[in-house]
Simulated scan of single mutants.
Amino acid sequence: MQALWVKWRTPRLPEPDGERSGELGEGKPLRLLILGDSAAAGVGVSHQDKALSGQLTRLLAPHYRLNWCLHAKSGMTTAQTLKFVQQAPNGVDVILISLGVNDLLSPIDVQRWLASTGALIGGLLEASPGAMVLLTPLPPLGNFPRFKQPLAGVLRRREARFNRALEQFCQEKAACQLLPLMLPLTPDALASDGFHPSAASYRLWAECASQAILARHLIEDTRPV
């Protein structure tokens, strides 16, 4: 009942305007796919320029000739995103995934979620062999001001189980890397709904992802031939 009350009281913010694909930058070609839920879609800001896609592509543009695409929709679970695999572009170099929050807020258990995650990544890698897959940890929803006890405690325990399982999953998959992302819970870190990231948080997320991409490709460029 508490969860339903919070859902009813939380404002529904729209996905921002702006381009969801494009080309920019100079240098070595890099094909980027951003995939996921409302956070990947940029909910919480007014335009994609301020969202994850806009901020990440700007950070990568000085280093790469970037061809990028965003496939994201509010409310998407990991299982639902499996339907997008056939629509996703083939032959990409980096896949950044933001999924799990809607699974966490549903009755699904960790093992079913991991099975869907494995199936999703398997399909993506089949279409893009050799791609680098960056996974985003679930945010500490139980610490968000909008959630009160006892719901907050339930969310903290579920978030901890989901993130431990995701970390273990990434350790066992050579193509996958879990971003070391820890967004602050300061007033300016959340959007007006008290749930989605603000532009400042999207910036931190983009910086974390760009650093992982640059570090991975720096290692590959310096390997002896």
Rank of each mutant, 00 (worst) to 15 (best):
A115Y: 13
L138D: 04
S116I: 01
F162P: 01
A88D: 08
D221S: 10
S198F: 11
Q168F: 13
R223I: 14
C176R: 07
D109H: 13
E159M: 03
C208Y: 08
G123E: 01
F144S: 06
P139Y: 02
G194S: 08
L70K: 10
L155Y: 11
E220P: 07
L179T: 01
R156H: 03
L33D: 01
A3M: 13
N163G: 00
P187A: 02
H63D: 02
L13I: 00
G22D: 00
L183S: 07
F195V: 03
P139V: 03
Q2M: 14
Q168P: 07
R157T: 15
S128H: 03
L70D: 06
A212S: 03
A115L: 12
S74V: 10
A40I: 09
R164T: 15
Q87Y: 10
N143Y: 13
W5R: 10
Q111D: 15
P129M: 12
P16I: 07
A40C: 06
L155H: 02
D109P: 08
L96A: 15
A152G: 09
G22I: 05
A72Y: 06
R164D: 14
Q87N: 08
A61G: 07
M182D: 15
P11Q: 02
P180E: 08
T77I: 01
G25V: 05
T117W: 11
A165N: 09
